[in-house]
Design a protein around this nucleic acid. Structure first.
Lengths: 119, 119
DNA sequence: GTGAACAACATAGTTAACCTAGTTGGCATA
DNA sequence: TATGCCAACTAGGTTAACTATGTTGTTCAC
């Protein structure tokens, strides 16, 4: 699968995966093949696949969950990353609402947990 | 040099170098120590240093020239606007990753809870 | 039926080794 | 002096192996 162009294999794989995500071939939230499967699919070693996934993980395009797999980040169409220097004020406001949301959800989870432990 | 925080070594080194560049300790156009020197300096293996440099290279912050060395990209003070205060920017970035992490963990907890209540 | 124990599989991080290729400086030879 | 060769150093790419840790499914004992 990896062509013998000048580009290194890990970049070729990263580009290919990126295209699949942007092209819709890999839907947001969907699970990627495992590292070993990708390695076989691209006829590459485990290491280069891990490097490719690492790049996209660093870009925020993919998220890896230890023990489960690598998923396509679904809230991608938002800004956050593309804009080089997005203004800090709105960023902080988003973070504040995100923290509030997390706080409420966590409170719910905690209450359900305490109810179950009570009985 | 690499502290035993939860963060992996290659990210610690990348962050440190990023701060040195943004803080002016590493001037644009200047030459970084060689990979081997950095490895010794951070008391890390060659591989993690190469990973750290690779990240910053991918970000466009550094440029590597085979046979010569790794240099700080100089045309970085680009358009957009004055970065207000680099400490705030990195602070916000850290908060964003922290919120993402919390969000993922909470989503996992919530999903397991809903699954159990379904059965 | 429940729960503990275990095996299999997953990502993640780290290390070491090897190869390729570009740069530089020294040195011997023409 | 000028040319060519060579050693040393550089980044970059690739591979393999190991450890750590999390998830999932099965099996077995209670």
């Amino acid at each position: 699968m990896v062509k013998k162009t000048g580009q290194p294999a890990y970049l070729q794989i990263a580009d290919d995966l990126r295209k699949q995500v942007h092209g819709g071939s890999l839907a947001p939230g969907s699970l990627l093949p495992s590292t070993a499967q990708l390695a076989e699919q691209y006829d590459a070693s485990l290491s280069v696949v891990k490097m490719a996934v690492g790049i996209l993980r660093n870009e925020g395009l993919l998220i890896g969950q230890q023990g489960k797999g690598v998923f396509v980040q679904d809230q991608e169409p938002s800004e956050s990353e593309q804009l080089p220097a997005m203004d800090l004020v709105s960023e902080v406001m988003e973070l504040r609402t995100a923290v509030q949301d997390l706080s409420e959800r966590l409170a719910r989870v905690e209450s359900t947990l305490s109810e179950r432990s009570d009985r």
